[in-house]
Design a protein around this nucleic acid. Structure first.
Lengths: 329, 329
DNA sequence: CTGTTAGCGCTTTCAT
DNA sequence: ATGAAAGCGCTAACAG
C-alpha cells in the first residue's frame, strides 16, 4: 500500500488513524489511492501491534430467544458505530459452555464482554472471567461473586405492580406460575409478588414448576380444584404465561371472566391471541443500549467503578386481565 | 510462554497446532505449563502470520426474525466446532448496510462468509464481494449476478403443495396474500401457487400488499366482497399469515369453516392460536447445517464448484385449514 | 526432535 | 510534515 502510493508506511498509518499531522494534499493523495485499491487495513496486524482487537464478545444463552435476540441486535448496532465487531457465542445456559466461549474470546483478544451469565454459575467461570482481564458487563442477571457492572430489569417492582394490578381489580386468589428458581430474575419477581400479596393480606399461591405443558397443566388443575380455587394467574416468564394460556384454552376456561391472566415479558403474539394478553414489558432496547454504552465506557476508561442499573418494566394492559378499557386507578 | 516453559517458540507453536513432531514428554510438559498459565495463543498474531483469521462472517437482515435467528444459531454451533469464531452483522435488508458489513469483514480478514443477500441487490455489493476474495455461500435467497453456492428452501414445490392441499379439499376461491415481490422466495412461492391453481383450472386471486395490518385488511375485505368471494387464504410468509389471521378474527369470520387459512413459514404460536394454523414449515436447521458445512468445505478446498441446493419444506396440518384429522389424500 | 531466524502488516518512537 | 526502523506473537523454513 505504502509503496504504491509512494509514501512511507508511517504516513499510511497516520491516514488510517484519522490523518492528523499529515499535509492536506498528502492526505488526499493517500486517501485516493486507498479508495482505488479498495484497501482495508489488516485488523490482525493492528491488533497485534496495538493490543486492541476492536472486537467485543457477546455471550448469551440462546439467540433464538426473542429477548436475547433483541439484546444482540442492539449490541451489534451500537458496536459497529464505534467500529467494533462483535463475536457472538451462545452458552446454552451452561457454565462449561460459557467457559469454552471465554477461551475463544481470549484467543481473539476481545476488548470487552457482554454476558448473560449461565443460570448454573460456577467459580471456575468467574476465575476465567478474571483471567480474560477485560471489562465485563452482565446483562439480565447478576454475575454473583464478581464485582462488575450489571444491567438488570427492575424485576421486583415490576412483579409488584403486576400483582397489585390484579389485586386492585378485586382478584384475591392469585396463582403465580414459575420459573426456574435458580434464576435471579425469577426470584426477584416472586418476591415482588409475595410483597404485594402480603400487603394485601392475601394468601400466596405458588407453583414453580411450569417447565413444560404437562407440569403447567397439573399445577393449574391442582390449584383450580383446591378449596377456594383461583381467580387469576401471574406467569413469571413468557413460557409459563403461554402455557397457562394454553391450559385455560384447552380446559375451556373463560379468560378473563373466570380467570384473569397476566404475564411477565411481552412476546410477539401476546397482542394477537384472543383474548390478547396483559403483560409487564421489559424495556429491552434501553437495557441493551445502557449495557453496551457502559461497556464501551469501561473499555476506554471513562467509567471505572462497577455500576448496577435497573431499568423499569411497564404494564401493557390488554384483554386477558379483564380490565382493558376499564377505569384503572 | 516459550521462555517460561524453557523451550523454543517453535516447540510451543507445534504444541498449539496439535503437537506433531514433538517428543511425548516435551509435549506433556509444555501442555502442563500452558494449562498452569491459562495461556491462549494470540489469534491476531496467528492470523497475521498465517493469513487465516479463523473467523467467518454472518450477514443477515435481522437477528430478531426467528428464521434468521435459528440460522445464526446453527452457524455459531457448527463454526465453533471447527474452531471458527463468527462475527455477526445485520444488513437491515439494505445494500449499503451490507457493503459496510463487508468492509468490516474485510478489515478482520474473515475466512468465509454466509450471507442472506439484502432484498435490494446492487452491483456495487457484488463487486465488493469479489474484492473480499473469500468463499461465499448465499442463504435463503440467491445472490443474483454472482456464481456462488446457494442454499435455498424449495419454495416453488412447497407453495404448490400448500395450494394443492387446499384444492384437494374442495377450496376453489383461494386468495394468495403477499409478500415483497422483489424477494426471490416470494416470487417462487407465488409461481408455485399459480401452477397449482392453473392446473386445477381455478382463477388466481392475488394480493401482494399485506405490508401492514391496514393493507392486509383492505385486501382481504376487497376480495371477500367481490363476486364469488373467497374460501381460503394462503399467506406467503409469516407476517401476512398472521395479519390474515388477525383480520379474520376481528371480522368474526369463522376459521376454517368460512375461510381456510394456510401459511408459509411456521412460527412460534402457530400451534397455540385457536384455531391453530396449518403451515408449510421450512427445514431451517437442515438449511443452515448444509450452508455452514458447504462454506467450510469451500474454505478448505474440499469443494470448489458452486453448489445450488434446495431443501424441502413440509406441510404441518393444524386446524386452520379445516382438514385436521380428516382423511387427507 | 528442537531451536534460530526471518518476516506477516501494522504502530510508534525517534530522527530528519 | 515525513520516513526509517524496531517489534507486537506467531509460523515456517532451515539448521543442527
Amino acid at each position: 500500500m505504502a509503496r504504491i502510493a509512494g509514501v512511507g508506511t508511517t504516513t499510511v498509518s497516520r491516514v488510517i488513524n484519522g490523518g492528523d499531522r499529515v499535509a492536506p494534499e498528502m492526505l488526499a493523495h493517500v486517501r485516493k489511492v486507498m479508495e482505488e485499491l479498495g484497501y482495508e487495513p489488516n485488523q490482525a496486524a493492528r491488533a497485534l501491534k496495538s493490543a486492541r482487537s476492536k472486537t467485543i464478545g457477546l455471550i448469551i444463552p440462546s439467540i433464538v430467544d426473542p429477548f436475547f435476540a433483541e439484546f444482540a441486535s442492539v449490541v451489534e448496532l451500537m458496536a459497529r458505530e464505534k467500529d467494533y465487531a462483535v463475536i457472538f457465542l451462545t452458552s446454552h445456559d451452561r457454565a462449561e459452555r460459557g467457559m469454552a466461549d471465554l477461551k475463544i474470546l481470549e484467543r481473539h483478544r476481545a476488548d470487552g464482554l457482554l454476558i448473560v451469565p449461565p443460570r448454573t454459575g460456577s467459580k471456575a467461570l468467574l476465575d476465567q472471567l478474571t483471567q480474560l482481564g477485560v471489562p465485563v458487563v452482565a446483562f439480565d442477571r447478576p454475575l454473583i461473586g464478581r464485582n462488575c457492572s450489571r444491567i438488570l430489569c427492575g424485576n421486583f417492582p415490576a412483579a409488584e405492580i403486576a400483582t397489585k394490578h390484579l389485586i386492585d381489580h378485586g382478584r384475591k386468589r392469585i396463582l403465580v406460575l414459575g420459573g426456574d428458581p435458580r434464576l435471579h430474575t425469577i426470584q426477584q419477581r416472586l418476591e415482588g409478588y409475595e410483597k404485594a400479596i402480603g400487603e394485601a393480606g392475601l394468601e400466596p399461591i405458588i407453583e414453580m414448576d411450569a417447565s413444560d405443558y404437562a407440569s403447567a397443566e397439573a399445577a393449574i388443575t391442582r390449584r383450580i380444584k383446591q378449596k377456594g380455587g383461583i381467580d387469576a394467574i401471574f406467569g413469571l416468564y413468557n413460557q409459563s404465561t403461554i402455557r397457562a394460556y394454553e391450559v385455560l384454552q384447552n380446559r375451556n376456561i373463560r379468560v378473563p371472566d373466570e380467570i384473569s391472566l397476566i404475564g411477565f415479558d411481552d412476546f410477539a403474539l401476546a397482542s394477537t391471541l384472543r383474548p390478547s394478553i396483559t403483560v409487564m414489558r421489559q424495556n429491552i432496547t434501553e437495557m441493551a443500549q445502557t449495557a453496551t454504552r457502559l461497556l464501551l465506557q469501561h473499555m476506554n476508561g471513562e467509567v471505572t467503578s462497577p455500576q448496577q442499573i435497573e431499568i423499569e418494566a411497564h404494564l401493557i394492559v390488554r384483554q386477558s386481565c379483564g380490565f382493558h378499557g376499564a377505569t384503572s386507578k
